[in-house]
């Protein structure tokens, strides 16, 4: 496998995916403004909620914003640079895999380029900026330990989102209903980023098992308060690695299970 050639083709494909919609200038500006409204209102909602209170269960506004930003930055980063993980169901369920397999790069690379959405990349940039502003306000860039822990939080969240999305979408190789579940997961996760302390105990357990809490609350509370919140924040990276490994195993099984009499219209 010629890795440099694959990387070159991937970058070329991604740039093309960005350049093509950018030719429509009016639409590009509409997309940028829409994303600012879409994402800005999410962060704005936290601001409104905190206009009534000084802290939420002991967590300040910047701490809660950082929890949101960490998870959403990682989610959109994975969705933009490895878009295949959330769209694998299209390839298994609609038969597009036939079309992807004849390409001169691995299926995951080709499909990630094909499914890449500039909106998600813009969203990742937006939450990177929001996360950076929150980190500066919390003084996290002033200590090497905090920087390392923040890096671990981002890495854990990225691995977890990679794993959660690939696991869900690979399920479409067996169950068409897996696609439905994916949308359920997606619409719920936006609300699952608040400090776990304020939620009822069954929901705390649920969000730990699923494991959304490892994308935001646990790793960020470790970065913010390492002296009191070591566990289970310290497990975020191992959990992320385990979930990613399980999803890759699942994807391998789905690929070998895949059978088709022909592909769907790839357009």
């Amino acid at each position: 496998m010629n890795i440099p050639a694959i990387v070159r083709l991937y970058l070329h494909g991604v740039l093309t995916q960005i350049k093509v919609p950018a030719q429509y200038r009016g639409d590009t500006w509409v997309a940028i403004v829409s994303i600012l409204i879409w994402r800005g209102l999410r962060v704005g909602f936290i601001g409104i909620a905190f206009s009534f209170i000084a802290d939420l269960g002991g967590w300040t506004v910047w701490e809660v914003v950082l929890m949101w930003a960490n998870s959403l930055f990682a989610e959109f980063l994975v969705n933009s640079v490895a878009a295949f993980v959330s769209q694998a169901d299209l390839y298994f369920y609609q038969g597009r895999m036939d079309y992807a397999r004849i390409r001169p790069v691995p299926v995951m690379v080709f499909a990630s380029v094909e499914q890449m959405r500039p909106e998600f990349l813009l969203s990742a940039i937006f939450f990177a900026i929001v996360g950076a502003v929150a980190s500066i306000n919390l003084g996290l860039f002033s200590s090497p330990l905090s920087i390392v822990l923040l890096g671990l939080a981002v890495a854990s969240a990225a691995l977890l989102w990679f794993g959660i999305m690939l696991f869900m979408s690979s399920g479409a190789a067996w169950l068409s209903r897996a696609r439905v579940l994916k949308f359920g997961v997606w619409s719920f996760d936006e609300h699952a980023k608040y400090p776990l302390d304020i939620l009822p105990f069954p929901l705390q357990v649920g969000l730990t098992v699923i494991p959304y809490a490892f994308t935001s609350y646990y790793p960020i509370s470790l970065a913010l308060r390492p002296e009191t919140h070591i566990w289970p924040g310290i497990l975020s990276l191992p959990v992320g690695l385990a979930v990613a490994a399980i999803s890759l195993f699942m994807y391998g099984k789905a690929s070998s299970h895949y059978d088709s009499l022909g592909s769907a219209d790839p357009t």
Binding site: T28, A31, S34, I35, I37, W38, F45, R117
Partner: peptide
């Protein structure tokens, strides 16, 4: 327009915050 995905998502966010389903 060639890209209405963003408009649709902005609509959802506007609707949730200004429509009263979040606050």
């Amino acid at each position: 327009s060639t890209n209405v995905f963003g408009i649709q998502m902005a609509r959802v966010a506007l609707q949730e915050v200004l429509g009263g389903s979040l606050i």
